[in-house]
Design a protein around this nucleic acid. Structure first.
Length: 899
DNA sequence: AGATAGCACTTTTTT
DNA sequence: AGTGCTATCT
């Protein structure tokens, strides 16, 4: 175990002050990027335990992501040892609430086996609920999308309002005159006014009802029920003697309330935050919580951490200049600990493919990280990296758990744990296909409503012959389904490891075969299922149930207090029915505690974003592609931020421009040694080139004399002094001079882009519109006159979609026949697209995109293809026919012949 | 009931 | 620019 005294000596005065701050005086640590806040936070926890003698189980540490919680846990192992660390109540607000709600479910009117409903299922649920309102909405000439309704519900929930609260608010507002309303809302327009608002409130009510009926909660519910629990039940938080909240600037009202309630007994609070890094306003985060805390805890003191240990001086200077453009921000500074280093690079490119090629080429010289604004922007970069065979990984959030095959498996398990969870039932009744269609499902659902039991129950009873079969007969078709569920239920109640449960499931339903039959990429999907098994084993090894148990076992008060946690009537029924299926006795204890291995695994799957396999992945040197949001709290030696341009920074959809600027600030401050900002002059948006310009966040700095020199166009040549600086900043040893020379010459030999230092090749982009008569006389055959041979193949899976017809030119102009790449044509009803691509003269590459406008569904559309092999064509609406036909010539790209 | 083709919608960011 | 829903067909 590390010696804490020694570690305390390493801290700077401000850090030390923060760590040793008296626990009973509420503390705000305002910590700039790279100021060692995680270190301070973990040290403070260790300090509270070892010096202030707080029991570990009386400390609540809240992080923003579960990943951050795991990292902090790792650090604390070294300071406190595994035993004491595991008693600390640590996790996100969501995860902590989930754990408490399992224990106190009855107190807030939930069942202990509730399922956490993910955003995807929520959306499907809303879509279903919206249907009855469709007619009314069109009649009143209003539009309401799932996302609109979901956004409303989430916003309202962030205030802690139930559906009834929301309805009351809308009614109240509607009773006011427009002037009064204006005053009430402080001039802000709230789209949920009038009849529309009533509909929204009503949808929310339906949604709430559906969730409860399915014995499930969504992400926002976890917080809402958490608040309800702690507000109502003071003993639920009586164990707590100190609360620490990280990333406080990103907490919303519910989370703030949770903090206050958990701290109710002790009034001891430490928060760490940075208003400059507040980037979750769109998720109802409130920077104002900083001020609110000062009011609610009047003794609050602040400590500023402004010494930056992460980045070079020039990176900090630019970052600070960016964020300082926000005039309303709290004045704070950053002091560099390191040398100036090479200035950040700012470069311009015609289109994202070239931008990506540049990044890939530049990375060849550097171990780098690349931060993108949207996940959708990463595609070009990924493929460019692949072309250069640079290993990379995408810092993926939930993507893995959103895959169809993963959701299928999880749905079975959810259904086993929570028979009432209708979304899971609907997902898997017919997976693999059991010849159960919509009609049967509707019949079952109807019966379920009549009998006031879950659809699963209905099916079980039919199969058992307890109730008569439905009209499209179910008994035979669904016997295997019920059988599977019962096998799994028995295993689960016997406390089997979730990884084994998954194996039992895929065996029982022959899932692999099902994938092969229905999915063209069955192999990779099956790999994903195996990956899920791995994830499950990992969760088992880390022993979350053990961990959760230890978090709670020290709290005697809690044990006395656990309300009788019986399952609901519905499950009770299952219990009896399934009696012959499992030996219930040993399951009893687990059920009562609310933490079965299965339940914990499911919860981890829903709440975790930490999908990385630590050992093998982290040791490899890889380029990381991440969104700017996901990059928060992380750092890399080199950071490249593409698409720093209009429409992206700030996003066209953003409501808060200042927040967008802060996001760029967060991204820039991830860099230790080198920072690149690039942008393009055109961006492909839903099939059309839209001209873009440099982000104003950067442009305004470049246009001013005082700030112009904060960046450079020249690529860093990394002379020895710069190499030394970067080595220092990144904490790596200085590379050997001879080795550098050898690598540079090696690079020069193999580099496909020796000319990146020169801007010329990228400024030859032209976009123009073709003559109208060309448009008028265009036929698929006229340009070029190449007979095309098609070979359309249906999707072998039989599902929607088909392979694009890839054709070889049989004859034609030399330029085309000599082209080694593709000529693609797609013919879908009403859309004729001809794409001519890549001509090569050995010196340069020319990319031609030819498009044709087509009148379709009353609008003029442009049909074209960017020339990606095997990729589908795109079509998009355009207002004016004459703009529809465009040709873009880019080039010469680069490929210079070596002399 | 299942297959298919066309249509519509999204695409910010995450627990 | 890919995916999922729906109407229509088999």
């Amino acid at each position: 175990m590390a010696n804490i005294n020694e570690l305390l000596e390493e801290l700077n005065p401000a850090q030390l002050k923060a760590v040793q701050h008296p626990p009973q005086i509420p503390l705000q640590i305002l910590a700039g990027p790279g100021s060692g806040k995680t270190k301070v936070l973990t040290m403070r926890i260790a300090y509270l335990i070892t010096y202030c003698h707080l029991p570990p189980s009386s400390i609540c540490a809240v992080t923003f992501t579960n990943k951050a919680a795991n990292e902090m846990r790792e650090r604390l192992y070294k300071l406190l040892g595994k035993d004491r660390t595991s008693q600390i109540k640590m996790g996100t607000f969501h995860a902590l609430c989930a754990m408490f709600l399992r224990r106190y479910s009855k107190t807030v009117g939930l069942d202990g086996n509730f399922t956490v409903c993910d955003a995807d299922e929520s959306k499907k649920m809303i879509a279903k609920l919206l249907k009855p309102y469709k007619e009314l909405l069109t009649e009143k000439n209003m539009t309401l999308t799932e996302n609109g309704a979901l956004g409303f519900i989430s916003k309202v929930k962030a205030k802690g309002w139930t559906a009834d609260d929301a309805r009351r608010y809308v009614e109240e507002m509607n009773a006011l005159t427009p002037q009064e309303r204006f005053v009430r809302t402080m001039g802000k327009f709230e789209p949920w006014e009038g009849e529309f608002g009533l509909i929204l409130a009503s949808v929310y009510k339906d949604y709430e009802k559906s969730l409860r009926e399915a014995n499930s909660v969504d992400f926002d519910d976890l917080l809402m029920f958490g608040v309800k629990l702690f507000a109502k039940h003071a003993k639920a938080s009586s164990w707590c003697r100190h609360v620490l909240v990280d990333e406080f600037q990103d907490t919303n009202n519910m989370q703030y309330d949770l903090m206050v309630y958990i701290a109710r007994a002790s009034q001891c609070v430490t928060i760490v935050g940075d208003p400059d890094q507040s980037i979750y306003g769109w998720r109802s985060a409130e920077i104002a919580n900083l001020g609110k805390m000062q009011q609610d805890f009047p003794a609050t003191q602040q400590i500023y951490l402004e010494q930056n240990y992460r980045s070079t001086g020039s990176i900090l200077a630019l970052s600070l200049a960016i964020v300082s453009q926000d005039k309303g921000r709290i004045q704070k500074t950053l002091r560099a600990s390191h040398a100036q280093g090479p200035p950040p690079v700012l470069r311009i490119f015609p289109i994202e493919q070239v931008e990506a090629a540049f990044i890939a080429a530049e990375i060849k010289r550097l171990v780098a990280f690349s931060g993108v604004r949207f996940n959708s922007l990463s595609r070009a970069i990924e493929s460019a990296l692949q072309k250069e065979s640079i290993p990379n990984r995408v810092l993926a959030g939930h993507k893995f758990f959103e895959r169809m095959e993963i959701k299928d498996v999880l749905a079975y398990l959810q259904l086993v744990d929570n028979p009432q969870y209708v979304p899971a039932f609907l997902r898997v009744v017919n997976v693999p296909s059991r010849a159960v269609g919509v009609k049967t499902i509707n019949e079952i659902t109807l019966r379920a409503q009549q009998l006031k039991i879950s659809p699963l129950k209905v099916v079980e009873r039919i199969v058992d012959g307890k109730i008569p079969d439905t009209k499209p007969p179910v008994k035979k078709k669904l016997a295997s389904f019920v059988h599977t569920i019962r096998i799994l239920r028995r295993h689960a109640n016997g406390g089997i490891a979730p990884s084994k449960l998954i194996n039992a499931l895929v065996d029982s339903i022959n899932y692999k075969e099902h994938l092969i039959k229905t999915q063209p990429d069955a192999d990779s999907r099956w790999d994903n299922v195996q990956e899920l098994v791995n994830f499950a084993s990992e969760v088992e090894q880390n022993g979350p149930e053990d961990l959760v148990r230890r978090m709670f076992e020290a709290d005697e008060a809690l044990h006395e207090d656990v309300p009788e946690n019986r399952d609901g009537e519905e499950s009770q029924d299952d219990w009896e029915d399934g009696m012959h299926d499992f030996d219930g006795d040993q399951a009893e204890g687990l059920r009562a505690s609310g933490d079965t291995p299965l339940r914990l695994f499911l919860q981890a799957s829903m709440l975790s974003s930490d999908t990385e396999t630590p050992e093998e992945e982290k040791s490899k040197e890889k380029v990381t592609i991440s969104t700017c949001h996901a990059a928060k709290g992380l750092e890399w030696p080199v950071v490249m931020i593409p698409a720093v341009q209009s429409g992206v920074f700030p996003s066209t959809r953003a409501e808060d421009v200042d927040e967008e600027r802060r996001l760029l600030y967060v991204a820039c401050t991830r860099a230790k040694g080198l920072l690149y900002l690039t942008h393009t002059t055109a961006r492909m948006m839903s099939g059309e080139f839209v001209p873009t310009h440099m982000s104003d966040f950067i442009g305004s700095l470049r246009d001013k004399k005082e700030t112009r020199d904060l960046f450079t166009e020249t690529l860093p040549s990394l002379p020895q002094p710069d190499r030394k600086t970067i080595a220092t900043v990144t904490g790596r040893s200085l590379p050997d001079e001879a080795e550098v020379a050898r690598r540079v010459s090696e690079y020069a030999k193999t580099a496909r882009h020796p000319a990146w230092g020169d801007n010329a090749p990228f400024r030859e982009t032209t976009m123009y519109t073709m003559d109208e008569d060309v448009v008028a006389n265009w036929t698929p055959q006229s340009f070029p006159s190449v007979p095309l041979k098609t070979s359309g193949e249906r999707n072998p899976a039989g599902g929607p979609g088909y392979r694009q017809d890839t054709v070889q030119p049989v004859s034609g102009p030399a330029a085309f026949s000599s082209s080694s790449s593709l000529l693609t044509t797609t013919q879908r009803a009403g859309v004729n697209t001809l794409i001519c691509t890549t001509t090569t003269d050995g010196w340069s590459v020319q990319l031609k995109i030819c498009c044709r406008q087509v009148h379709k569904q009353g609008v003029w559309r442009t049909a074209f293809d960017a020339g990606n092999q095997g990729k589908a064509n795109a079509s998009s609406s355009v207002s004016e026919p004459e703009h529809a036909l465009t040709a873009t010539v880019i080039g010469p790209l680069n490929e210079r012949r070596a002399h």
